[in-house]
Nucleic acid binder design. Structure first.
Lengths: 139, 139
DNA sequence: CCTACCACCTCTAGTCGCTGTAGAAGCAAG
DNA sequence: CTTGCTTCTACAGCGACTAGAGGTGGTAGG
């Protein structure tokens, strides 16, 4: 259970060394103790913390959301409603993006299908992209 | 058919004025002629061009892809295979992201459902995010 | 004529989450 | 001692904008 250097930490968490330092710089990881020559040394709890961050990112949580979640974790006796709310909201966001992306895919699929291998000047794809008012939808 | 100022152009294409200038700065829009006092003046072809850009962006094409598409459009007699290829590749990319996002959604949905409104220390959501090896999948 | 207001101008910096670079220094093995 | 790897700091860059500061031009009302 002796402390590890940054390379080892990065390796165990499938993170790049530069990313670890970046997380420290934005306050996601606390600045670890250093060796006499100035190298960072991490212990098991740092590894856990970094696992949490990486998993959070993989799940699409923003750095701020992860910060909040980790903040909440520091009051272990509080109920987890707040954490649950963050996760639920994030799920909603993902679902919204998913729906939006599906619309996009359909539109692109139609576009792609419509191609008749014509001259550029007659290309339906180009025409479709260039047309006036596609959909003034929300942002 | 007289030229319009940047505000009008932006308004007709549902674009922000700053974005129009930004497009000019990165070479998506050509620098337009100016009035004596230095204001940009746009004509109908600029409006078309900007429509094309905005629709392209709305469809998720990158600025570089749009640049390519507009470059291709300058050879109207060439066949549109290249344009079609860009669109098809983009569709593939969108489909890939869509699939990835769907996986994410499922994972998040499970996470959210698992919450038992416990103490933070026992919260299943927090536990799930913090656990060791979620999936070493591809980056 | 003076003033207020708006649209426009340029230039710079900020967003987000990293990634990559340069240049220096530590450290172990051969 | 040299080689080669890891680590260090500090800063620039990505994409596609967006926002702000600080200034000018033109017009409309009083």
């Amino acid at each position: 259970m002796k402390p590890v250097m940054i390379g080892q930490l990065a390796c165990e968490t499938l993170t790049k060394v530069t990313t670890v330092r970046f997380y420290e710089s934005i306050g996601l990881l606390r600045p670890p103790p250093r060796t006499a020559s100035g190298r960072r040394t991490y212990d098991a709890s740092d590894i856990e913390r970094l696992h949490f961050i990486r998993n959070g990112r993989r799940l699409g949580f923003s750095v701020d959301e992860i910060r909040s979640l980790m903040g909440l974790a520091e009051n272990p006796d509080q109920d987890c409603g707040a954490a649950s709310a963050i996760a639920t909201q994030h799920l909603k966001d993902v679902e919204a993006r998913l729906a939006q992306l599906a619309v996009l895919r359909d539109e692109l699929a139609m576009l792609s299908q419509s191609c008749t291998k014509a001259r550029m000047a007659d290309c339906r794809i180009m025409r479709a992209i260039g047309r006036r008012h596609p959909q003034p939808e929300r942002q």
